[in-house]
Amino acid sequence: MEKPINNRAWLLVAPVFLIVAFSAIVPIMTVVNYSVQDTFGNNQFFWNGLGWFQELLDPSTELGGRFFAALWRNLAFSAIILAIEVPLGILVALSMPREGWKVAATLVVMALPLLIPWNVVGTIWQVFARADIGLLGYGLNWLGIDYNYTGDTLSAWITIVVMDVWHWTSLVALLCYAGLKSIPDAYYQAARIDGASRWAIFTTIQLPKMKRVLLIAVLLRFMDSFMIYTEPFVLTGGGPGNATTFLSIDLVKLALGQFDLGKAAAMSLVYNLIVLAVCWVFYTVMTHAGQDYDGNRRPQEETPA
């Protein structure tokens, strides 16, 4: 038996390999190279083995200390915004209109924040929240609330969190809305006949049917917030002190501010590995959830609509 094997296909894929090689593999190998060496400038490098990594993962050292501090800051930030944006997004999606002209209007309004570039978002909030001239900052202080994101850690954190919620809740809401729209009316009718409460309808019908889009929303928001850089950089520059210095900001300080290329390279590799690991966990959970969905069905044939 002969199977048609067409080797030309490889030629067609080759450009992609080349691009990936130059855009990803070569830079990563450069970083790996830096991470095992030390330099004193003048393009002189010394072999350092796993020295940077040992220092990085030991919280008692200076490097390890700042790495873990930034890491916890990052994790805390992601946890806070997920805890706010996911329930809020679901709530918004549930209260969005289901038909008529209002649907289109709502969708446009919802999509607006998503279209604004990151650094513009940072700039908008930087001005908006300033205690001297910003509407928000001035207003809060006028109300007698002591608010100043450049000097006060709590104020800075609240500002960054509110900014992120403002920017990204729409995304979660739109994804959830798509999930909700796919539920046939018969389910709601059946639930009414079964005497289900609003809460029961939410937990037994809406939430299970939104499960998959919610996983995607959580993954997207986690990755994005874990790698956040532009907005806090524009808004606070990592301050006051190091209060909003997230991993990405610290990395830039280390690499470009102090020119500690070896340390920065080691840190970015570990950072990258954490991101990959989280990705993998989400992927596994998601494919598992997918199987759960169609587990008992042979994927090939007549699926009643």
């Binding site: 046939p184 009718q189 059946a190 006949i193 005497g195 289900a196 029961a200 299970p208 049917k209």
Partner: peptide
């Protein structure tokens, strides 16, 4: 009412499905 396309609560067992209207 029984609909054209089967309506069951996906996350529940058959027992929980049947008990649902009574629990409510």
């Amino acid at each position: 009412q029984v609909f054209q396309f089967p309506v069951v609560y996906d996350t529940m067992t058959v027992r929980e499905n049947l008990a649902f209207p009574l629990k409510n």
